[in-house]
Lab assay of single mutants.
Amino acid sequence: TGEEYIAVGDFTAQQVGDLTFKKGEILLVIEKKPDGWWIAKDAKGNEGLVPRTYLEPYS
């Protein structure tokens, strides 16, 4: 389980392990790392690192 967040901007993977997403996408945050990069999963089940500055809590 995780917390749902909504993307407030588009993000394109910079390196292997990053997750590309579009503004408005709902992501499930699995782990919040202290460096500001969180592990998240998208609706298709893809998992990767995302920058927390692009996310806001979804309710």
Rank of each mutant, 00 (worst) to 15 (best):
T1E: 13
T1K: 15
T1M: 14
T1F: 15
T1G: 15
T1H: 14
T1A: 11
T1V: 15
G2T: 14
G2R: 13
G2F: 11
E3V: 12
E3D: 13
E3R: 11
E3N: 11
E3A: 10
E3F: 09
E4D: 08
E4W: 15
E4C: 05
Y5Q: 02
Y5F: 09
Y5C: 02
Y5P: 00
Y5M: 06
I6P: 01
I6S: 03
I6A: 05
I6V: 14
I6D: 01
I6R: 11
I6Q: 08
A7P: 01
A7S: 06
V8I: 14
V8D: 02
V8Y: 04
G9T: 12
D10N: 12
D10C: 04
D10S: 15
F11E: 01
F11S: 02
F11L: 05
F11V: 07
F11Y: 14
F11N: 03
F11K: 04
T12V: 11
T12A: 10
T12H: 11
T12P: 08
T12W: 11
A13T: 05
A13K: 06
A13L: 04
A13W: 05
A13M: 07
Q14F: 07
Q15C: 04
Q15F: 09
Q15Y: 08
Q15K: 15
V16F: 11
V16E: 15
V16D: 15
V16I: 09
G17Y: 07
D18N: 14
D18C: 06
D18V: 09
D18Q: 13
D18E: 13
D18Y: 11
L19E: 00
L19V: 03
L19K: 02
L19C: 02
L19I: 06
L19Q: 01
L19F: 03
T20A: 13
T20M: 05
T20P: 15
T20N: 13
F21Y: 03
K22S: 12
K22H: 11
K22P: 02
K22G: 08
K22V: 14
K22L: 07
K23A: 08
K23Q: 09
K23I: 10
G24Y: 10
G24S: 04
G24N: 07
G24C: 05
E25K: 02
E25V: 06
E25D: 11
E25A: 12
E25S: 11
E25W: 12
I26H: 07
I26K: 07
I26L: 12
L27N: 00
L27C: 02
L27I: 08
L27E: 00
L28M: 12
L28P: 00
L28V: 10
L28E: 07
L28G: 03
V29S: 01
V29L: 05
V29R: 01
V29P: 01
V29F: 02
I30H: 04
I30N: 03
I30M: 12
I30F: 14
E31T: 12
E31V: 12
E31R: 07
K32L: 05
K32S: 04
K33Y: 10
K33F: 15
K33M: 06
P34D: 14
P34E: 15
P34I: 08
D35E: 08
D35R: 03
D35K: 05
G36S: 06
G36D: 09
G36L: 07
G36W: 04
G36H: 06
W37D: 04
W37R: 13
W38I: 02
I39P: 02
I39R: 14
I39M: 09
I39A: 06
I39F: 11
A40P: 00
K41E: 05
K41H: 09
K41P: 00
K41W: 07
K41F: 10
D42A: 03
D42L: 03
D42E: 02
A43N: 10
A43M: 09
A43T: 14
A43G: 11
A43K: 14
A43W: 09
A43C: 04
A43S: 15
K44D: 15
K44C: 05
K44R: 10
K44A: 14
K44M: 11
G45D: 06
G45C: 04
G45V: 01
G45E: 05
N46C: 05
N46D: 09
N46A: 07
E47M: 13
E47T: 13
E47W: 14
L49R: 11
L49A: 10
V50P: 01
P51F: 15
P51Y: 15
P51G: 07
R52M: 12
R52C: 06
T53H: 13
T53Y: 12
Y54R: 08
Y54L: 11
Y54S: 11
Y54C: 08
Y54F: 11
Y54P: 02
L55G: 00
L55P: 00
L55K: 01
L55Q: 00
L55S: 00
E56H: 09
E56F: 10
E56C: 04
E56D: 08
P57C: 05
P57M: 07
P57N: 07
Y58F: 08
Y58E: 04
Y58D: 04
Y58Q: 07
Y58C: 05
Y58S: 08
Y58V: 10
Y58W: 13
Y58N: 08
S59A: 12
S59Y: 11
